[in-house]
Design a binder for these strands. Structure first.
Length: 333
DNA sequence: CATCAGGGCCCTG
DNA sequence: CAGGGCCCTGAT
């Protein structure tokens, strides 16, 4: 196996997210299953990041408060990384920081959302507990598609195993800030990996989808940054055209990668049970119809998926602090 | 031990 | 447009 690359602190940035900003609730999502590429503890997240083909380490730290937010980001690179001109170097780091801000929504303005729903009977108390949280996750479109594929038709534990297997076989191991983590391989990085090899790693029929998606991205047939600027329906269409990507995966990506706060049109059976309990107090054995759930969430209008994110993350944070038995049963982690 | 459904999707008829 | 098949795993 390839050996660990030791990364050195190369540059430090300070960013001021819009207030209010909850560092931990934005930077750590207890329900996200990716592991091996990050470590979180209150106030700090170590995260690997593949940027312009190069494996990096980021140490993201809370240096402020909810009302006076300040985030410190240390960027670790290989000492051998050669950034030839000062201009090139500045662009490399500035663009990276822009991307980190994008993915963690440091500039999201929550004021209107709070004004509209801060006093909502159901959502109000959630907003109070989760004040300053915003959606946030670090996976690029390519990476998220791989994640989406391993989520399909599998229990959480199996998804985690598949994800780690992929990282440990095709990723790059890096060490920075005394943490050893795995960094994602670049798009097209599975060019020389056969479908059979993936199947032997217990990816099952997903091997085919992963190969096709890797090939598609390797040939640069899709441009994440251009797609980001396109209308929602274009994004949906382009994603659905990818082999192995259906409505469930698209729905996750429209929210997490393209930041469509208003799209909420898909509820899978296990999620249906959880929402039924959350919003209607129904036992998970007797869930409310998907239709009724969708009607309920519609009242949050252009913020309806953001609202769901608040409900959902609030539940997981509560679960993290004090085990919720019915939830544990449902997720079977 | 065997059986089965699971945080979907593709393909066929 | 409904439903079978797909891989593997842990639950039963």
């Amino acid at each position: 196996m390839s050996k660990t690359i030791k990364l050195k602190l190369r540059k430090t940035f300070f960013l001021k997210p819009t207030a209010p900003f909850s560092f931990d609730k934005t930077i750590h999502k207890p329900d996200h299953f990716t592991s091996g590429d990050n470590i979180w503890q209150p106030g700090i997240r170590w995260q690997t990041w593949r940027w312009r083909g190069v494996p990096l380490g980021l140490k993201i730290e809370n240096s402020g408060s909810v009302n006076k937010p300040l985030v410190k980001i240390g960027i670790y690179t290989s000492p051998n990384l050669f950034l030839n001109s000062q201009e090139f170097k500045n662009r490399f780091f500035n663009d990276l920081i822009g991307e980190v801000s994008y993915f963690y929504n440091f500039n999201l303005d929550l004021k209107e959302f709070y004004r509209l729903f801060g006093k909502d009977r159901k959502l109000g108390p959630v907003i109070k507990r989760m004040r300053g949280m915003r959606p946030g996750q670090p996976s690029s479109l390519y990476e998220y598609l791989i994640v989406g594929i391993v989520l399909q038709n599998a229990s959480v534990r199996r998804s985690i195993n598949m994800f780690r297997t992929l990282l440990e076989n095709f990723g790059t191991q890096v060490k920075f800030g005394r943490k050893e983590l795995w960094c994602f391989w670049p798009p097209g990085g599975l060019k020389n990996v056969s479908e059979l090899k993936l199947r032997k790693l217990k990816l099952g029929y997903r091997a085919k989808s992963i190969k096709k998606i890797d090939d598609y991205f390797g040939k640069k047939l899709i441009n994440e940054f251009e797609l980001r600027e396109q209308p929602c329906e274009t994004q949906r269409r382009e994603l659905l055209a990818l082999y192995g990507v259906g409505p469930a995966t698209v729905w996750y990506i429209l929210f997490d990668v393209f930041h469509r706060w208003d799209v909420f049109d898909h509820i899978s059976p296990w999620e249906q049970k959880i929402y039924s309990k959350l919003w209607f107090g129904k036992e998970t054995t007797n869930p409310v119809s998907v239709d009724k759930l969708l009607r309920f969430i519609n009242k949050y209008g252009k913020y309806k998926h953001l609202a769901v994110h608040y409900f959902w993350e609030d539940l997981w944070w509560q679960h993290k602090e004090q085990q919720i038995d019915w939830l544990r049963k449902e997720i079977r982690a």
